[in-house]
Design a protein around this nucleic acid. Structure first.
Lengths: 162, 162
DNA sequence: TATTGTTATACTCTATAACTATA
DNA sequence: TATAGTTATAGAGTATAACAATA
């Protein structure tokens, strides 16, 4: 009962390949959006009110808080989001989508889903759902940033903006 | 039947988080190995003779061929691999593991598997196998580099060096 | 003419530290 | 003293182009 010692048996190898393939696909879909695929994730994170401050979004996305500044500068410059003072903490800023931002998010969301289905084409429909679910659970439970940024994922929200 | 528009419903978000978490874990495990986790993948790719030239390994790993030069310079300097002329094509070099390289690969492989199991801890054992299998199939089928680098993955080899 | 491997350069992304304003 | 956000700098990683050797 020894290990295969093959690259294609390595989880890191498979994760890297799939992630890069997804990234390439997503970059084409969101071309023109400030920040690329990460810019989309900022919009999506800010869209549900539970994760709205810059730091919370940064933790949710797994990036340093310093990158949020540039990212939000661009997204705000494009008129997609606004930085509003947090009434509960004057140090923090709450990121809210503008009407244009919500519209853009809807459009991107639809096209990204289509692109993802093409990426997952080698799998059966039920397998695609399984993979999505397993990765989602792993991403919400395996985050090194603590559970604070992940609590929002425990339930599939009924909020629906489209 | 509209889309949720939540970050945690985005495949790219989950892939990014899980991949980063895996990368951090792997970097600790392979600390000291030239090239880090990618150096391990080179060793694993070169270990099965089917993928042995620098270009084939680069495609298998999804990196540019120029990075293979630095990566192999370090691994060869550490005495883990050798560059041998390809008898069939004098332009190409076949990468073969030294005895030390095979030994190192065995050790890394075992420890990486342990680390991966810790990463997959939030999932049930059967779910972990499912995730590994789905990602493996996707990585071998979804590669943009064509099928040439992926043919090796169709069967679980009986070769076992440990 | 196309391909393998190498080298040099430039660019992007990220990490780190320092600073402010608030808590 | 600790935290949210900003800014500047340095480093790692990556992509591009040019080159030599071979097909």
């Amino acid at each position: 009962m020894t290990t295969p010692q093959r690259v294609d048996a390595d989880l890191g190898w498979a994760l890297g390949r799939v992630t890069r393939a997804h990234l390439r696909t997503a970059q084409e879909v969101v071309s023109g959006l400030p920040g690329g695929p990460r810019g989309y994730q900022v919009l999506a994170a800010a869209n549900d009110g539970e994760v709205s401050t810059q730091l919370a979004i940064a933790r949710m996305l797994g990036v340093d808080r310093t990158v949020m500044t540039y990212l939000l500068d661009e997204l705000e410059g494009a008129g997609l989001v606004e930085r509003r003072p947090d009434p509960a903490d004057r140090r923090a800023r709450r990121i809210v989508l503008t009407a244009a931002g919500r519209e853009r998010l809807c459009d991107l969301d639809r096209r990204l889903r289509e692109a993802e289905e093409r990426l997952l084409a080698p799998l059966e429909p039920t397998e695609r759902d399984t993979l999505r679910e397993l990765l989602r659970r792993l991403a919400t439970g395996a985050g090194q940033d603590g559970a604070s940024a992940c609590q929002v994922a425990e339930e599939i929200a009924a909020t629906d903006g489209c």
